[in-house]
Simulated scan of single mutants.
Amino acid sequence: MRINRTLRLGMGALAITFAAAACGSGDAETADIAADGKLTIGIKFDQPGLGIREEDGSFSGYDVEIAKYVADKLGVPSDGITFVEAPSERREEMIVNGEVDFVVATYSITDERKAKVDFAGPYFTAGQALLVRTENTDITSVWSLNSSTKLCSVKSSTPAQNVKENYAKDTQLQEFSSYSECVEALLAGSVDVVTTDDVILAGFATQAPGELKVVGANFSLENYGIGLKKGDDGTRARINDALEEMMADGSWENAFEDSIGPLGNSELTPPTLDRY
């Protein structure tokens, strides 16, 4: 199985942990909503290899395949899914307001977010990195950032907060609504560097061959989970069951290879499941 060496995902040491959730009676649980054969799922529309809306209106990417598999295990076929765009700054709001049944959108599990929503998973582990123009030789790691650096990330994203709080407090941070906007600004020369998870950046780099590159060792650990309504323990347990089955039957590996694997030529070691 193939994946870009620049991702540096450390998958060989990855352990996917599923919290055992006691089945409870959540308020309007997704499992009940899914009984009519329909689900509304939030994804990203602009992340190559992860969540993309194609020109013909269809959707592709690793997160999309995760969503389809989970939905199927909840009794909802692909044609019963309505995919809606879930911008980073609106994911919790969309879940809380009932705009979506759950969110599969490179959604890092954090304590702050768990105060508002619940998570199933994680189903993937990434790490924060940097994306620069190919000719840039000044920025080689997060320690290269300084007060003259124009850094771009997304509003309400963990990468932006991580850099400002822990690495380069005086960096000129510019926050946009999407990473595709950041990448456009990077290509135009109006920002110097974009930061988010390595797997997201690698996808954008493939869209601009010879123009962009991923640099620096990873400087965070991001566990991607499926966000859903807080207190919906029954559905969370069923989604965890589906994720565990997806990894065990080879579907996880196939989805990853088909969507993100084409990014490069390095070996991926499938994660070890450790459910407790």
Rank of each mutant, 00 (worst) to 15 (best):
E253G: 04
F176W: 07
T171I: 15
E99H: 08
T235L: 11
V100T: 11
S108D: 15
G37Q: 12
N240F: 09
D79Q: 14
G80S: 07
A255P: 00
R275I: 13
S180I: 09
Y224K: 01
K164I: 14
T125F: 04
N162G: 01
E253K: 00
V215R: 06
Y276V: 12
L131F: 09
I43G: 00
Q172C: 06
A126P: 01
S180R: 08
G225Q: 03
C23P: 04
I260Q: 01
F124I: 07
A255T: 01
K213W: 04
S177D: 12
D249K: 08
V103Y: 03
G250L: 10
D111V: 13
E165S: 14
D118A: 11
A217P: 00
P77Y: 05
C152D: 03
L263E: 02
A21F: 00
A67T: 07
Q174F: 12
V191Y: 05
N146S: 09
G24M: 15
V193H: 04
L50V: 08
S78Y: 00
S141K: 10
L131R: 03
Y276C: 07
G121F: 01
I16Y: 04
S157F: 03
A255S: 14
A120E: 03
F124A: 05
Q172H: 13
S58E: 06
M246C: 09
A28T: 13
T40M: 13
G80A: 10
A67R: 02
S259Y: 00
C23I: 10
T158V: 14
L221V: 13
L212H: 09
A31Q: 11
R53S: 06
Q207L: 14
G261M: 03
G24S: 15
F45K: 07
G250P: 13
I41S: 04
R8W: 01
E257F: 06
A35N: 08
P159W: 01
D63P: 08
G10D: 10
G231H: 08
R275S: 13
M94W: 01
L273M: 13
C23H: 01
W252Y: 15
K73P: 05
V64A: 01
D197M: 08
V183E: 02
S60Q: 11
A21Y: 04
T195Y: 00
I43R: 01
D198K: 06
Q128S: 15
G227Q: 07
A202K: 02
D101F: 04
V100P: 01
A168S: 15
K230R: 15
R113C: 09
Y276A: 11
D170S: 13
G75R: 06
S177C: 04
A105Q: 03
F219A: 07
L221H: 06
G37M: 12
